[in-house]
């Protein structure tokens, strides 16, 4: 099972160019509310992301970034338009399909959403139990390795209440990475982190993209991290208005 492999163990690398598209959105529309209070937030969003790309989604608040992220991340049912995720159509997908799909994704939320009753290692372990790796003995080594990777080797058995905001966020990152997801979705992942840790987290995501062809879709306002992206999609009023390519000027920080 691939999910048991260590995160820093390189898998076969293919170039981004000939890999199939990872996420493809066409005519994606979405509204909240019903009747008179119905507000349309997305008006035909279209984009395509290849495997192994790091994409940043930017735009003013209320432009629909998070809605896009939750729609393509299987966290919200698609109302109108089409989303092809890893070759699977999400519009009209059954709850079972969505659950299956979610296991192939990694999510880093703005709020860490760690379970307060579980230690850092157990929180990360939950990311492996979902793949059928049951029992602390089974997931403990992988959990420790990923926590070390995000610089929390000393905090493995701490409950969230004993961790700082930045440390909690890094546990959440570790939890998202531990299952070796094919796509990582991140919503403001660096909001609670200082400059140094932000750099560490985003360069980790960049490395995953380069070494294991993990696709990364990130919503952020953080200008410090823009340089890791292959492309930046700008959103405004529920549409993608501009696309910037940064790949020429990119420097991968080590």
């Amino acid at each position: 099972m691939t999910s048991t492999k260590s995160i820093n163990e390189p898998t076969m690398a293919t170039t981004a160019k000939d890999s199939p598209s990872s996420i493809e959105a066409k005519g994606l529309c979405h509204s909240f509310g019903e009747g008179d209070t119905k507000v349309q937030v997305l008006h035909g969003v279209e984009f395509s992301i290849r495997r192994g790309e790091v994409i940043i989604l930017m735009g003013p608040s209320g432009s629909g970034k998070t809605t896009v992220l939750t729609l393509v991340g299987c966290l919200r049912s698609v109302q109108e338009g089409s989303v092809q995720l890893l070759g699977e159509e999400l519009n009209g997908a059954s709850e079972t399909t969505l659950t299956q799909m979610r296991r192939r994704l990694g999510f880093i939320f703005q709020a860490h959403n760690l379970h307060e009753s579980l230690t850092a290692a157990q929180n990360v372990g939950m990311g492996l139990e979902v793949h059928g790796i049951r029992g602390e003995a089974a997931w403990r080594p992988a959990s420790e390795r990923v926590l070390e990777l995000v610089g929390l080797g000393e905090r493995i058995d701490f409950l969230p209440e004993k961790l700082s905001g930045g440390q909690k966020q890094r546990v959440a990152v570790a939890r998202a990475l531990v299952g070796n997801p094919e796509i990582i979705f991140a919503d403001e992942p660096t909001a609670a982190l200082d400059k140094k840790t932000s750099k560490q987290v985003v360069s980790l995501l960049r490395r995953l993209a380069d070494e294991r062809q993990t696709t990364v879709l990130m919503v952020t306002h953080d200008h410090r991290v823009l340089d890791v992206a292959d492309r930046i999609l700008m959103m405004e009023d529920g549409r993608i208005v501009e696309e910037k390519s940064t790949s020429e000027s990119i420097e991968i920080p080590q």
């Binding site: 979610r102 939950m126 990311g127 939890r175």
Partner: peptide, 12 residues
């Protein structure tokens, strides 16, 4: 919100 996270991770 923790349960929602678990659900997002693929728990049925």
């Amino acid at each position: 919100s923790e349960y929602a996270t678990f659900k997002a991770m693929g728990y049925a």
